[in-house]
């Protein structure tokens, strides 16, 4: 791969891995949701994300040019080669944690996809355009639930506040663009990162206000992992051990 391709490959892994790990976490709720209607809605979100995973990782494999398929990338990389942000690998916790994790991610995901739909790379633009519809719904839903439960009962408010305080440090990574993001923005391939951050903050701060939730203290995320650079916490290894176990136990088998 050229230096340019290298950066694009990295970036595509980030997009695909975010979707894969978040889909995986969300799918853990299937059969255990707080209401049947919610069980079904959550599964829809996870299904959308799995679909997006396959598109991003397939394209990543194409760009890499080493013959790796989406499944190869999903099931054969070790944790240190994953590029998802640390937020999405956090455990589900109670439903409030799951919801807040989804909300904080959706608020970054949608503006990112909106901008990617105008990427100078037509393959990226095509995937992003399709994903935008799905993620528009994700963000609408997660925002609505955060507001309802934040401004709900005393208990739902307390649980959301706890979850928000606990997960807020992971939003630092979403709001701290790195060289790859700036470089690809200059090439017109990826969004201007600062614009995405501004949109994230605009949406999230307003939603928290309507949810009567207190915005947690900033700047506590320095040591919470730099997943997009491959520096994850302990959770990802355990997650991948489970996710990849069957596939790795039967190398070469078709399913």
């Amino acid at each position: 791969m050229t230096g340019d391709d290298d950066a694009v490959f990295e970036y595509l892994l980030r997009l695909g891995d975010n979707c894969l790990i978040l889909a995986h976490r969300t799918s853990e709720w299937c059969g255990h949701g707080p209401a049947l209607e919610e069980d079904i809605a959550l599964a829809n979100t996870a299904l959308d994300l799995i679909g997006q995973t396959r598109l991003w990782l397939s394209l990543a494999g194409e760009v890499e040019g080493a013959g790796r398929s989406a499944d190869d990338l999903a099931y054969r990389r070790d944790a240190m080669d994953f590029r998802n942000v640390s937020l999405v690998e956090q455990p589900n916790g109670d439903f409030a944690h799951t919801l807040v994790r989804q909300f904080l991610f959706d608020a970054w995901h949608l503006p990112t996809l909106h901008a990617l739909a105008r990427s100078s790379d037509p393959r990226i633009a095509a995937i992003a355009e399709k994903a935008t519809k799905e993620v528009t719904y994700h963000l609408e839903r997660s925002t609505d639930l955060v507001i309802r439960l934040g401004d709900g009962s005393a208990e739902s408010h307390a649980r959301l506040q706890t979850a928000l305080t606990s997960l807020w440090p992971f939003s630092d990574e979403l709001r701290d663009p790195d060289d790859i993001e700036y470089r690809l923005a200059r090439d017109g391939i990826a969004p201007a990162p600062d614009a995405v951050v501004a949109q994230w903050e605009g949406h999230v701060f307003e939603a928290l206000r309507r949810a009567t939730l207190e915005r947690p203290e900033e700047g506590r995320g320095r040591f919470k992992g730099r997943g997009k650079q491959g520096r994850h916490g302990e959770h990802l290894g355990l997650l991948l051990a489970e996710m990849q176990s069957l596939s790795r136990a039967h190398p070469g088998a078709s399913w």
Binding site: A35, E37, A41, R141
Partner: peptide
């Protein structure tokens, strides 16, 4: 039919349950 706390969520739940 389905359960929902209010009208807006009834529409959302209907989208997720009945339009897959």
């Amino acid at each position: 039919s389905l359960h929902a706390p209010d009208a807006a969520m009834a529409i959302g739940n209907a989208r997720d349950v009945y339009t897959r």
